[in-house]
């Protein structure tokens, strides 16, 4: 009789363990699949040819540098937009806005995060890029800038929502302590509240960045998709093509097992490694500051 709870324990533990391990197993499986499909590219295309500036698969030119730089320009641009706006909005919501306003604005921001990126891409094509073309007097509005603006807008809700939670959970005592010393509201936010919420704010930024690196649809729709090198400052105003957009656009029409096919997988592998690196950096930073936070709360 008294054995049955024990048996149940074992059973539940086994299920939970399976779930936990399977997540790890899936990541490893995906990684090996990418390796198997992507690595052959390194034998079929010479390394020197891979790192050239000409992407023209039909004539067997597989230079991935334009795609790398394209992704870089769009992502960095998006971060330059999302980080200040995201933190600014979070600070406004958590520290400045009166409660009723915050209770309206925060769900709205989160709703914005739920809009499918295709829909945003649509708005990008119909409104943003014509506006950029006329306003900046460009030959086309489908540029890296349009992609960066759109990606920024996609990353902001995630960033705001998590950063606001982090700021909100800073004990009121910190603010009162600083104010009682004669700090102004801004000095308190800058020197006390934000540093105290550092780990949460960093998490917010990293997740925002993660969304911009992986985002495909919206960028494909508005960046113009021209595989040209984006290394000049003016590149931000010309069309570019990102790694994600290249895979999405070309995967459907390549012959299974061809060199082109393998190179696309190699690009996927590179993307995978980049987001792995971002995640590892993020969690190590967060881990370090969490230990500090735990001491504060003990």
């Amino acid at each position: 009789m008294d054995k049955s709870p024990n048996w149940r324990e074992t059973f539940v533990t086994a299920i939970v363990k399976t779930c936990g391990y399977s997540a790890v197993v899936f990541v490893i499986l995906i990684f090996f699949f990418l390796l198997r499909q992507g690595l052959p590219a390194l034998f079929e295309v010479k390394l020197g040819d891979l790192f050239t500036t000409r992407w023209y698969p039909i004539e067997n030119h597989f230079g991935i540098l334009p795609l790398l730089t394209g992704s870089l320009v769009v992502t960095v641009g998006a971060m330059l937009i999302a980080i200040p706006f995201g933190i600014g909005t979070a600070v406004f919501l958590a520290e400045i806005a009166p409660r009723w306003m915050r209770e309206i604005l925060k769900p709205l921001v989160e709703l914005l995060g739920g809009i499918p990126s295709v829909v945003l891409g649509f708005l990008g094509i119909l409104l943003l890029s014509p506006f950029l073309r006329v306003f900046l007097n460009l030959p086309t509005g489908l540029t890296a800038l349009a992609g960066a603006l759109l990606l920024g807008a996609i990353a902001i809700p995630t960033t705001v929502s998590i950063a606001e939670d982090a700021l909100d959970s800073v004990p009121q005592g910190y603010r009162e302590g600083a104010l009682a010393l004669g700090a102004t509201k801004w000095q308190t936010i800058w020197r006390v509240t934000l540093p105290a919420a550092r780990s949460g704010v960093l998490t917010a930024l990293m997740l925002g960045v993660g969304r911009t690196i992986g985002e495909t649809m919206a960028v494909m729709m508005v960046t113009g998709n021209a595989p040209v090198m984006a290394i000049k400052l003016t590149s931000i105003l010309s069309p570019v093509r990102t790694m994600t957009a290249t895979i999405a656009a070309e995967m459907g029409e390549v012959a299974n097992g061809s060199t082109h096919y393998h190179v696309l997988f190699l690009i996927g592998l590179i993307l995978f490694l980049i987001s792995l690196a971002v995640n590892i950096t993020a969690s190590s930073v967060i881990f370090k500051s969490r230990k500090r936070a735990e001491r504060v709360l003990s």
Partner: peptide
Amino acid sequence: FARPVVLPM
């Protein structure tokens, strides 16, 4: 204050 609030510095 009652609960010591040292600043994160």
